[in-house]
């Protein structure tokens, strides 16, 4: 899923986010996650930048299971 997203954005944008893509993958691999009554959000900001980031939002259900 993350790889698909990474391939969708311009190469230079993906390169800037390389480090935080890894963090996002790490978060996904530590799943599953279940939304009970509050959303789950993780924002991974590229170090030394103000806005370049990768966000993961889970609004409903169970996400990132191995099934």
């Amino acid at each position: 899923m993350i790889l698909k997203l990474k391939n969708k954005i311009p190469k230079n944008e993906a390169k800037v986010r390389e480090y935080v893509f890894k963090k996002a993958v790490n978060f996904i691999e530590n799943g599953p996650y279940q939304v009970v009554d509050k959303i789950i959000i993780k924002s991974f900001l590229v170090p030394d930048t103000e806005h370049e980031r990768v966000d993961i939002e889970i609004q409903k259900g169970i996400a990132f299971t191995n099934d």
Partner: peptide
């Protein structure tokens, strides 16, 4: 009140 979960739901 809070609106973001601070755990994995499990």
């Amino acid at each position: 009140e809070d609106y973001i979960a601070t755990d994995d739901g499990f």
